[in-house]
Write a protein that binds this DNA or RNA. Structure first.
Lengths: 332, 332
DNA sequence: CTGAAAGCGCTTACAG
DNA sequence: CTGAAAGCGCTTACAG
């Protein structure tokens, strides 16, 4: 069996209450006693059982993260940010990677059973019912890259503003016929980016023809089909704005296969500024998102809600994006 | 307060023992009673408290994952594999992302406190002492992409074989002067790959000059410096074998900056076959690793050890790699 | 098939 | 500053 607090107490010749006190360092303890206890702890190799502790304190010191089951650098930077914030305050990270679209409830079960002190949900489209259930169980929820009403805290990047900035830049190149490759329509980021594109075009008296919107899902390969569809259009678009870099890279491949050149024949731009963007040829003009920051701040906020036991201020944070001009837009 | 098993028992007019029985579905329970209990559970919205349950069963149904703090697709595919295996058996995943090199013990604490039933350590170079401690606490450990003696189960890809295959291919192109950009020397994969390179060269009566080994650390940007160092050499290498695709991509950028062409002036090959490899120009010849499989199998093994309470068979698994020929080696 | 009781390993008022 | 006792929410022999 493993070493318990009773073993330590016995060895140190004190009660378990005293052991608990020196372990948690909260109440005052005679320095001599404390030393004896510490010696017992060390010699026995004792470690507090986190489960027992959590059961009585009602704090597991674990934070739950729900994230779509995609493998891209964009999401992983968020995870890194979350992980850093979480471990900085000595908490652990429990991850549930949820397949988009499957809507099964099972995945959330660990979170409904008192396992985590707070939950961070990334672009995951939780149902209202699920959110309500979590709320009933009194576990704070923070949304990342999505929003859902006023009452649930959220951290997003300025998808709209970034899209506007990018579109303005493309317009300055003189492009007129825009095409858009959309992301998964389950998440709101793609819609926001599209809205930015539309509004900026409208500002110059242009409109986006619906036929020039090709559906994608953010994932590898989906930009491929979308671009093929766009290349069947007549006239061809001047410039393609893909909802993320991955799809933009796919589009580039297709355009090259068709014997056309980027940016001379068709310009391209993406969104996210993942590492891939700077490695392809021509390097991709895109919008940088502070993903690590996003995850870090969201996690800090979640932890704060737990600590303060009240909502955070401000409830809704929008992090600025930054236009990254490379060659695929026609610059240089 | 939250709904407990007592509330359910009261509502259903039975004892908590009975409620527990229907919840866990193990012992025989009168169908009528079971229905009453289930109705109470549903109407109260009751969920078992996972902490309390874990405390008595001595199973938390959580699996711990230790992974270096890098953000690359290679590692994340492993995570995805682990996550799938873990959630397939209704367990949760607790992640600790460990900075290489910092050697602080703190990160392992959650794992030493009874929080997880098993641990999977990815290329992380746990110290012997840490492994021993974990063993003392009776939590099974499975190593991924590393080995440490006979007694600890491990899952690795065939780094040596893959490197041999790749080298043979490059030799068939007629290259003679090889250079190697190494990975972090904390992990054994890079050493294995280097060994494969060396042995294959030796098979053709060639040797690798130490000056042609440039140190890298697998991370973004480190191939950059390494390649600069190699380009200062006289004579220049015919071909550069980078220990992973990321560094190979960096090397490509540097070679282009120097006004040289790949593969005409210097050929390049990588390792891993991450998505990036197929997007750069020229597309990268590399060695595919079954990373998802690796994580999946490792997690299954860990879960099996927990379930069977005995070591698995076989203890050491080597998954085959596959040569992926693209253009950077000179093919086409 | 079901209930009363002990126990998992801790923390935390409450006394002293 | 310290200890005895209750309790966190479950499971599981043990009786019946």
């Amino acid at each position: 069996m493993s070493v318990t607090i009773f073993d330590v107490a016995e060895r140190a010749g004190v009660s378990i209450s005293t052991v608990s006190r020196v372990l948690n360092g909260r109440d005052r303890v005679n320095p001599d006693t404390a030393r004896r206890v510490q010696a017992a702890v060390d010699s026995l190799g004792f470690r507090q059982n986190a489960l027992a502790r959590a059961l009585v304190t009602r704090r597991s010191e674990m934070v739950g993260l729900i994230i779509p089951k995609v493998n891209d650098p964009f999401h992983f930077e968020i995870v890194r940010g979350v992980e850093d914030a979480v471990s900085l305050s000595n908490h652990s990270l429990l991850i549930v990677s949820q397949t988009r679209n499957d809507g099964e409830e099972r995945n959330l079960v660990p979170f409904q059973r008192g396992l985590v002190d707070a939950i961070i949900a990334v672009a995951v489209d939780l149902s209202r019912a699920e959110m309500a259930d979590l709320e009933k169980r009194n576990v704070p929820l923070v949304l990342v890259q999505q929003t859902e009403g006023e009452d649930i805290p959220s951290f997003v990047t300025d998808n709209y503003g970034g899209a506007c900035q990018l579109t303005e830049h493309l317009l300055d190149h003189g492009y007129q016929r825009f095409a858009y490759i959309s992301g998964s329509n389950l998440t709101c980021d793609s819609a926001e980016r599209l809205r930015g594109l539309r509004d900026s075009l409208a500002g110059r008296g242009l409109a986006l023809d619906d036929r020039y919107i090709a559906p994608g899902d953010y994932l590898r390969g989906s930009g491929y089909e979308a671009m093929q569809r766009l290349l069947a259009l007549d006239p061809l678009p001047d410039v393609v704005f893909a909802a993320n870099d991955q799809m933009a890279s796919d589009a580039l491949l297709v355009i090259n296969e068709y014997g056309l050149r980027v940016p001379e024949d068709i310009a391209i731009a993406g969104f996210d500024d993942v590492p891939l963007a700077s490695y392809i040829t021509p390097a991709l003009t895109t919008v940088h998102q502070p993903t690590y920051e996003l995850g870090f701040q969201a996690a800090q906020a979640a932890l704060n809600i737990v600590k303060e036991e009240k909502p955070i201020e401000p409830m809704h944070v929008v992090l600025p994006t930054r236009l990254v001009v490379r060659r695929s837009c026609g610059c240089h």
